[in-house]
């Protein structure tokens, strides 16, 4: 599990390490993140270079995604706030979706399959949640939420709320990362089985059946997981931010 980056990716990592290694730590994950980012930016520029009233091609694809995210947000936090948060949520959705799906390509690694990436994403959501919570309710109003409705229960309620707030980004990051990584590992283990079985060459027909025909099934499930996890991450981010901003509710 040490050098898990495949050959082409490893080559890219080494090359970038030679150039940028002095200033930034270069990793397979970081290289993949950059690749995904550049891909998304190219897609965006291609789509936006010829925006038309009647969408077509790349524009249509992006519009469907953005419209979906916008619709999701409008139901949660109203039209005005939805417009404000659209760039953040749209970028999150695009980045996570493309990152998840790129992990299914053999030879490439999903950036979201690394805990560092998902922690970074969850951290952004966490910071924005509390920033807009304080901005929306004021510092005192925001802290009041931690104390709860009954003042003498504060010693009990404050730690509970505190831990609850900390658990949000934790579970958010773990959910995405573990889903992506477990799928990646399942595929990796099956690939490992192929190597082991073919080396020993015992019962070739029966034993190779499993590692050769199971990966497509896992990949099909993987596509579903990618879409659902993207939806869940973005949805939860929207829910957290809208809950932090809205007036006294619970």
């Amino acid at each position: 599990m040490e050098a898990e980056a495949p050959f082409l990716l490893q080559f890219l990592v080494d090359w970038l390490n030679q150039i940028l290694g002095k200033w930034i730590p270069i990793n397979a994950t970081i290289v993949m993140t950059w690749l995904v980012s550049i891909g998304i930016i190219i897609l965006a520029i291609v789509a936006c270079s010829s925006l038309k009233m009647i969408p077509k091609g790349a524009q249509n694809l992006l519009e469907i995604l953005i419209e979906q995210v916008l619709q999701l947000m409008e139901g949660m936090m109203g039209q005005k706030k939805a417009k404000f948060f659209l760039p953040l949520m749209g970028t999150l959705a695009l980045f996570i979706l493309v990152s998840n799906l790129i992990g299914l390509v053999p030879g490439l690694k999903a950036p979201t399959g690394d805990w560092n990436t998902t922690i970074a994403l969850a951290l952004i959501v966490f910071i924005l949640t509390h920033f807009f919570g304080i901005k929306g309710k004021g510092l005192i109003g925001y802290l009041k939420h931690f104390v709860g409705p009954i003042w003498w229960l504060a010693p009990l309620m404050v730690p509970i709320h505190f831990i609850g707030e900390l658990a949000k980004p934790f579970s958010l990051s773990i959910r995405l990362f573990a889903n992506m990584m477990s799928k990646h590992m399942a595929l990796g283990c099956l690939a490992l089985l192929i190597i082991i079985f073919s080396k020993k060459a015992i019962l070739f027909a029966q034993t190779l059946f499993i590692p050769l025909f199971l990966p497509p099934v896992i990949m099909m499930l993987g596509v579903l997981t990618c879409l659902i996890q993207t939806f869940v991450f973005v949805f939860l981010a929207i829910v957290y931010i809208s809950i932090a901003m809205e007036e006294e509710e619970h």
Binding site: I24, P25, N27, T29, I30, T33, W34, S37, I40, I41, A44, I45, A47, C48, L51, L62, E63, I66, K83, L86, P87, L88, G90, T91, L94, F95, P111, D114, W115, N116, T117, I119, A120, L121, L123, I124
Partner: peptide, 30 residues
């Protein structure tokens, strides 16, 4: 593994992506 350097790089790249997309994608599309 969590390494704060990689985490910071990821954070920075995401923020750059957010900025660029906000400028090139979300403004015109909105």
């Amino acid at each position: 593994s969590i390494s704060w350097q990689i985490l910071l790089v990821e954070l920075a790249s995401f923020l750059i992506l957010l900025f660029v997309l906000g400028k090139f994608l979300f403004k015109p599309i909105t």
